[in-house]
Simulated assay, not measured.
Amino acid sequence: MRQLLVIGIGAGDPDYVTIQAVKALNRVDVFFVLDKGEAKQDLVALREEILRRHVERDHRVVSARDPERDVSAGPYAEAVEDWRRRRADVCERMILDELPDGGTGAFLVWGDPSLYDSTLGIVEDIAARGNVELDYEVVPGISSVSALAARHRTVLNRVGGGVQVTTGRRMSAGFPADVDDVAVMLDVRPMTRLPAEGVDVYWGAYVGTPDEILLAGPLEKVAPRIDAAREEARARKGWIMDTYLLRRRS
């Protein structure tokens, strides 16, 4: 039996790693990494820094190239499912080749494994195939949504209200009905497309890292600044990770 740990390592700051996660990190024999290419070497460096700070036992790091997702393929759900299947193929091969029976391996997940991340689905797929006998555990982490609220010194929901966590793709259809507070992830589209009347925004990119950018205020005024900051950051670094909270004014 092989053991897998799916460990949430927080939104970017190595200090976001919880005590529970540190304990889990120090049970691991082999860390598995899907390499996303040269443009995202900053993410590899952050993982290496987390391991350097928090892991005190001998271990190995095994990496493989992350399959590309065809963003032009459709429909969207089928394209994502195909991409996840190909990722599962790669991860299964790493586990079979690099993790001996009785060993403990781990996937490190940015933020929290339960929130818009495919790792758990991949592990479930591998387990269901039956080619490798394994058990797995999940260690929660500080999500980018939680980190964003903390950095802006605000809460996600107001008294008696709820908050919806959604994607930029869904926000393109408009502000959700009967919701006053919306946390948005995975948005690559211009902020100026969003309905802005009576809405405030709390936005952050690379939250918890030295490159962190924070902007907040009335959406109609701040949206152009956010779009400009996104483009500058993407041109400078080659990638961007950002999250924002939209709040209807009372």
Score class of each variant (00 low, 15 high):
M1A: 15
R2M: 01
Q3M: 07
L5Y: 04
L5M: 08
G8Y: 03
I9W: 03
G12A: 03
G12M: 05
G12L: 03
G12D: 04
P14S: 00
Y16K: 15
V17E: 08
T18C: 04
I19L: 14
K23F: 13
A24D: 00
L25K: 06
V28N: 06
V30F: 03
V30R: 06
F31I: 02
F32K: 00
D35Y: 02
D35F: 09
K36I: 05
E38M: 15
A39K: 13
K40V: 15
Q41E: 09
D42P: 07
A45I: 13
L46H: 09
R47S: 03
E48V: 13
R52Y: 14
R53T: 03
H54E: 01
V55Y: 07
E56D: 14
R57W: 09
D58V: 13
H59P: 00
V62Q: 10
V62W: 04
V62F: 06
P67T: 04
D70Q: 02
D70C: 01
S72L: 13
P75W: 02
P75Y: 04
P75R: 00
A77L: 13
E78I: 13
A79W: 00
V80C: 02
W83S: 07
R84T: 06
V90T: 07
R93V: 06
M94G: 12
M94P: 11
L96S: 10
L99E: 10
D101E: 14
G103N: 05
G105Q: 10
A106Q: 06
D117G: 12
T119F: 12
L120Y: 14
G121W: 11
V123G: 10
G130T: 08
N131E: 15
N131C: 14
L134Q: 03
L134V: 12
D135G: 15
E137C: 12
G141Q: 01
I142K: 02
A149D: 08
A150S: 08
H152C: 06
R153D: 12
T154P: 08
V155C: 13
L156E: 10
R158T: 12
V159I: 15
V159E: 11
G160N: 13
Q164S: 13
V165N: 09
R169L: 11
R169E: 11
R170G: 15
M171H: 02
D180S: 14
D181Y: 11
A183F: 04
A183L: 04
M185Y: 04
L186D: 05
R189P: 15
R189F: 09
P195K: 10
A196G: 05
E197S: 09
G198W: 02
V199A: 06
V201L: 05
Y202G: 12
W203C: 02
G204K: 01
T209L: 01
P210E: 09
D211I: 13
E212R: 04
L214Y: 01
L214R: 01
L215M: 05
A216P: 12
A216C: 12
G217T: 00
G217K: 00
P218G: 11
P218W: 03
E220A: 12
K221A: 14
V222R: 00
A223K: 00
R225T: 08
D227N: 00
A229G: 02
A229R: 00
R230C: 15
E232K: 11
R236S: 06
K237C: 14
G238C: 02
W239P: 10
I240M: 05
T243E: 05
Y244I: 00
L246Y: 05
R249E: 03
